[in-house]
Amino acid sequence: MRTAVSRLELLQPRSVREALRMLRDEGPLVPLAGCTDVYVGLNFGTLSAKRFIDLWPLDEMRAIRSTGGVLSIGALATYTELIRSPLVARRLPILAAAAREIGGVQIQNRGTLGGNVANGSPAGDSLPVLAVAEAMLVLSSAAETRRVPFNSFFSGYRKSVLRLDEIIAAIEVPRVDGRQWFRKVGTRAAQAISKVVLAGIRSDRPRIALGSVAPTVIRLPKTEGALASGAPIEEARRVLEGEIRPIDDLRSTAEYRRRVSANLLERFWRDTAG
């Protein structure tokens, strides 16, 4: 059943400082920006939160810049901004590739990278990219700013180490060496939630991350190890199939996800060879 919007509360800070103060003093509040996930929950009546804080106007959290070899992406950068950014195109083209496959133009104009991370869906399309890029999340509260590796951020299905008084302020991507690869498998050609999504980096230290095959987006250390040690691809496929924990859900089956994940691994490895 649809949520009654008039009973929801929305705080509208005018600066990041004010937002952090509100989170500290007037919480708990759910931060929102583009609202692209919030509205799906509102319409289906699955949104339990009643109090929200609107970060969308806080332009200080929107910039994409490069500082000292680190690509820093403000949490409010939209998918459209990622797609158009020359910096992203140069440094992490698979992030732009992922952004292009998220929703349609309207969603890309509103949805933000910080929101994709905070929403914490195991199917979030940008998340495997951040996992293989070994991004750092800049988490801000009124008390402090701390940096948490993306790969230690999620603690379970839609659970993370983000505290109630914190927001994701920025995503920092270190220099990425090697060939990058990304592939999303959805139910249809556009505007579909992933059944499987894989990001990979081919280097001396191969890195692979998968979405929609476990409670969170996951890196595959054993599979990466097998590839790094020069194991044949058939061997790496077997390791991968043992390393993921896909389930049957509305979108697909565990068996399909397992088989497709192994196929994508092989395709990644062949496409990035030589």
Binding site: V40, N43, F44, T187, R188, A189, A190, Q191, A192, I193, L250, R251
Partner: peptide, 16 residues
């Protein structure tokens, strides 16, 4: 109907 939303009952888009 468990997928009574346009986000998970998918009809062809122009691209499909």
């Amino acid at each position: 109907m468990a997928n009574a939303q346009l986000t998970n009952y998918l009809v062809p888009t122009t691209l499909d």
